[in-house]
Amino acid sequence: MPLPRPVAALTAATLLCAALAAPAAADPAPKYAALGDSYAAGVAAGSYDPASGDCHRSGRGYPALWAAAHGAALTDAACSAAGADDVRRDQLPKVAADTTVVTLTVGGNDLGFTSAAVDCLQPLTTDARCDRTLDTAAHHLDDELPGRLDALYSAVRAAAPAARVVVTGYPRLLQTGTACLIATESRRQRFNALTDRLDELIRRRSEAHGFAFADVRPVFEGHGTCGGGKEEWINGIVVSHLWESFHPTADGQARGYLPTVAALL
C-alpha cells in the first residue's frame, strides 16, 4: 500500500540525510615505486637503511618522506651509482604491475658526474682537465643518453601501465658569482650549464612518454654549494664520506625535492 505523501517525503528525506552523512570510502593507499640513483636514494641525507648496503637508501630521501606522508606502500629500489640501464635491468623487475605511483631520478651517472666532480670541483685540478671531462660528458649526453632514457621510460610504462610517473631533474650544484674555494667561477658555470642541458633532455624525453617532469632547479636556487649567504642544501666535499659529496642534504631532500615532486603527485 502506498505511503501517505507526508510519510513518503519524510522517509525520502531521512534516506537522503543518511546517505550524505555516511563516510565516503577511503581511497586505497598508493602503491609507490621509487627508482633511480643516489639523488633518489637520499645519499648525504643520513639515516641510511643498513639493509640497502652500498645503495645507501635514506629514510630522509624524498621517496621515503612522501610515502610516510601519504601512507603509501613503498618499494624503494633506488641505488647509488645507478645509471639508466641499471634501473631498467636491476630495479624495474621489483615494480609490481598494479603500482599507482612511480618516481624516477636518473641520468647523471650516465654522463660521468662523479668523474666530472673530481676533475672540476676540487682545488688541485686544472681547467684543461675539467674541460676534457665535461666534453666527454657532453658527448654522452648528445649521443647515448637520449636512447637510454627512451628505452627506460618505455620499460617503466610497460612495468606499471596505470601509474602516475614523475621524473625529476637535478639541481645546479654550485652557486656562481660568490667566493668559493671548491672551483673557479668558469668551472662552476660550465658544470651548471651541463646540468641545465641534462635537465632539458630529461624533461623533453619524459614528457614525450607522457610523464610529468619535476624541475628542482628553481627551489634549489641560491642553496647550492658556495651559496654565499643562503643555507646550503648541497654538500661540498665530504672528506669522511667522499660518496656524499655534491649531493642534497636532508634539507635539500625535504625542502627541495619533496615539495617539487609532491606538487605533481
Rank of each mutant, 00 (worst) to 15 (best):
Q122K: 13
D119C: 10
D98G: 11
L124G: 13
A155R: 14
V167G: 02
A138G: 13
T126I: 13
V156Y: 01
Y170S: 05
D143T: 15
A128D: 14
L149Y: 03
R132E: 13
G108H: 03
P63S: 09
G61R: 01
G107D: 04
L173N: 04
A117C: 08
T133M: 08
V156K: 02
L65A: 11
D127E: 15
L174M: 13
A160I: 08
P171R: 05
A72C: 13
L124E: 13
R89E: 14
G177A: 11
A72T: 07
Y153A: 03
T75N: 11
D76S: 07
V101R: 00
R172W: 07
D131M: 12
Y62T: 02
D85Y: 03
L65I: 09
H56G: 04
A64C: 09
H70R: 15
W66E: 02
D119N: 14
L141R: 06
T133P: 01
V166Y: 02
A69E: 15
A82E: 03
D85S: 13
D85C: 08
A138M: 13
A155N: 14
Q122V: 09
L173G: 02
D127L: 14
A81D: 11
L111P: 00
Y170P: 03
C79Q: 05
A84K: 02
R164E: 13
L104W: 07
V118Y: 05
L152P: 06
P161K: 08
A128W: 15
A159S: 14
S115R: 12
C130I: 05
V87F: 01
R57K: 14
D98K: 06
A97I: 04
V101C: 03
G61T: 05
V118W: 04
L173R: 00
D85R: 11
D131C: 06
A77W: 02
V167A: 06
A97N: 11
T136R: 12
H139G: 15
S80A: 09
W66C: 00
A77L: 14
D142E: 14
L145F: 12
D127F: 10
A77E: 08
V156E: 02
T168R: 05
R57A: 03
D85L: 12
V156T: 09
H70A: 13
S154I: 10
A68H: 12
R172H: 14
T168F: 02
D143Y: 15
A163E: 01
A77H: 10
Y62H: 11
D143W: 14
A159R: 14
K94T: 11
A84H: 06
C120G: 02
F113M: 15
C120N: 03
T105C: 08
S58T: 07
T136Y: 11
V166I: 15
G83W: 01
D135H: 11
